[in-house]
């Protein structure tokens, strides 16, 4: 019966493309939207369009931004000698939220994964090398994810930049804060022990 309402069906199909949303949830959301006043729907529609029309990637660090270069790249209070390399904007935001890092960033937009057809040319590696070659950066913190692919990407970058004489660091494998050792899974404890540091 729902198929007899083409505009409804069309919206459900679009919503069902979202990550983590199946047909059931999409239908529920569509019914919710249906009952909304028109002004609300207009606000949502223009927010969606704005997001697309106003944002782009920063031409320096490739983070999402409305102005180019982005706020992080133009922030005078940040350390120009330190750069943090992440896989995606989400990772950048996670580090920013922690307020633990005061250098610059570089977003790769992915990690090496031959099985998915992703090689160095598909990532923002070349612009990173150009930034490093300018000579200001003294330390590169590689904060790619702790996956097989993230690790390989880190190693690849390390090899690639060896000759530049930049200090290379990797995020430490850690025990989540507030967790008791007893309840942390063994693999994490293992890596935390391997990556122990002097007090």
């Amino acid at each position: 019966m729902l198929n007899s309402i083409p505009s409804f069906t069309r919206l459900v199909s679009e919503l069902a493309k979202f990550p983590g949303i199946g047909n059931k949830t999409a239908t529920r959301l569509a019914f919710f939207l249906l009952r909304q006043p028109e002004a609300e729907t207009e606000a949502l529609a223009s927010a969606l369009l704005d997001l697309k029309r106003r944002t782009r990637f920063c031409s320096v660090c490739f983070h999402i931004t409305e102005e180019d270069p982005c706020q992080i790249c133009t922030d005078k209070g940040r350390d120009d000698t330190l750069i943090c390399v992440v896989e995606d904007p989400q990772a950048l935001l996670a580090i920013e939220r922690s307020r633990s890092f005061k250098g610059r960033y570089h977003v790769l937009h992915g990690a090496l994964s031959p099985l998915d057809g992703i090689g160095p040319a598909d990532l923002k590696v070349a612009p990173l090398i150009r930034r490093l070659e300018q000579g200001t950066i003294q330390e590169m913190l590689i904060a790619t994810n702790f996956t097989v692919e993230g690790d390989a990407t880190a190693l690849y970058l390390a090899k690639l930049t060896q000759h530049l004489g930049i200090k290379l660091t990797r995020l430490a494998y850690g025990i989540p804060m507030g967790s008791e050792l007893e309840y942390v899974d063994e693999a994490t404890v293992n890596r935390a022990v391997e990556g122990r540091r002097e007090l």
């Binding site: 090496l112 031959p114 160095p120 097989v148 390989a152 880190a154 090899k159 690639l160």
Partner: peptide, 18 residues
């Protein structure tokens, strides 16, 4: 992942991390 790279005849440089 490594076998995939070998199948693509990739450069040795790309193989190194794997």
């Amino acid at each position: 992942q490594r076998n995939q790279l070998l199948k693509q005849q990739s450069s040795f440089k790309e193989l190194i991390p794997w």
